[in-house]
C-alpha cells in the first residue's frame, strides 16, 4: 500500500502526467471549437460536423476521442514511467532496500492505472465543457445534455474504455521495461501502435486479435456511430465480450512479461 500511495504522489508531481492530459484535452478542445466555429449549416457537411457538438451524440464523440487517442498517449505514458525507473536508477534504489521487484512493478502499474482513470475523467469533463461551448458557438441546442439513456450508459462505457486504455499502457510499460529505457520504450510503443493500425488494413483477420485492435473494439463496443469515428469498431469483427477478454489477456500478459523480466534482470545501471 505504501508503494501504491507513494507511486500516486510521484505521478501527481510528474510533468509527464500534466503534459499528457493537457495535450489530449487541448487537442480535443481545439477540434471541437474549431469544428463548431467553422461549420457551415447550409451544407450537409456542415450539418454533419455540428453533430460533434450536438448532445447526446457529443458524449460519445468525446469518449471515443479520448479512448482512441488516449490509447496512444497511454502507451507513451506507461513507457515513460517504466523506462525512467531503469534510466534514473530508482528501481535500483528500491531493490537495494530489499523491496520485492514484483510488488514494486505491480504497484507502480496500479498507480499508473489510477492516474489514467483520473486523466481520462478530467479530459472527458473538459471535452464535454468544450462541446457545450461549441454548441453555443454553432447555434446548436444543448437539450440532449440530460439524455437519460446516454447518461446511464456512459459509466459502463467509460470503465470499459479505461480498462482498454490501461491495457495499452501496459504494453508501453512492458516494452520500456524490456528496453530499460524511456526513449526506446516510447519509440517502440509508438511504432507498434501505428504499425498495428496500418497492418489492420492488410491483415485484418490477424490484427483484430492484436492489443490495440482489441482495445479499440472493447472500448467502443455498444457506442453508436459518431462522425469520423469507428462507430462501434467497424474495422473489427470481434464481439465485444471476446474483445474484452482479449484485452484482459494482453494486459495480464504484458504485466507478466514486465515482472518476469524485472525479477530476472541484473541491475547494472
Amino acid at each position: 500500500m505504501r508503494i501504491f500511495v507513494s507511486g500516486l504522489r510521484k505521478l501527481v508531481g510528474r510533468p509527464a502526467s500534466f503534459v499528457t492530459v493537457g495535450l489530449l484535452a487541448g487537442l480535443l478542445v481545439l477540434i471541437i471549437i474549431a469544428s463548431a466555429a467553422s461549420a457551415n449549416r447550409s451544407t450537409a457537411r456542415g450539418e454533419a460536423t455540428l453533430l460533434l457538438v450536438t448532445f447526446p451524440a457529443a458524449y460519445d464523440f468525446v469518449l471515443e476521442f479520448i479512448l482512441g487517442l488516449g490509447g496512444l498517449f497511454a502507451v507513451i505514458y506507461g513507457a515513460a514511467i517504466a523506462g525512467s525507473e531503469w534510466g534514473w536508477g530508482t528501481l535500483k534504489n528500491a531493490v537495494a532496500r530489499g523491496e520485492s521487484r514484483t510488488r514494486y512493478m505491480l504497484l507502480t502499474f496500479a498507480s499508473i492505472s489510477v492516474m489514467i482513470a483520473v486523466g481520462l475523467a478530467l479530459t472527458f469533463v473538459v471535452g464535454v465543457g468544450a462541446a457545450i461551448v461549441g454548441a453555443n458557438i454553432g447555434g446548436v441546442s444543448t437539450a440532449g445534455l440530460n439524455d437519460s439513456a446516454t447518461l446511464t450508459r456512459l459509466p459502463q462505457t467509460f470503465v470499459r474504455g479505461w480498462f482498454s486504455v490501461i491495457e495499452e499502457a501496459s504494453l508501453g510499460f512492458a516494452i520500456a521495461t524490456l528496453a530499460r529505457s524511456q526513449l526506446a520504450g516510447i519509440g517502440a510503443g509508438i511504432a507498434f501502435y501505428f504499425g498495428e493500425t496500418f497492418a489492420r488494413f492488410f491483415l485484418p483477420d490477424i490484427v483484430k486479435y492484436m492489443p490495440f485492435a482489441v482495445a479499440n473494439a472493447s472500448a467502443t463496443a455498444g457506442a453508436p456511430a459518431t462522425p469520423g469515428g469507428d462507430g462501434g469498431s467497424t474495422l473489427s469483427s470481434l464481439p465485444a465480450d471476446t474483445a474484452l477478454l482479449l484485452v484482459a489477456v494482453w494486459l495480464i500478459g504484458s504485466l507478466a512479461v514486465a515482472i518476469l523480466f524485472t525479477e530476472r534482470a541484473e541491475i547494472t545501471g
Partner: peptide, 23 residues
C-alpha cells in the same frame, strides 16, 4: 551504489519519502 539516483522532478524530501515507501 555508484552515483546517487533520484527522481529529478521531486525535491529532496519527496525523494526520501518515496524511497522510504520501499523496504
Amino acid at each position: 551504489i555508484e552515483s546517487p539516483s533520484f527522481y529529478p522532478y521531486l525535491n529532496g524530501r519527496q525523494n526520501l519519502r518515496a524511497l522510504a515507501a520501499t523496504g
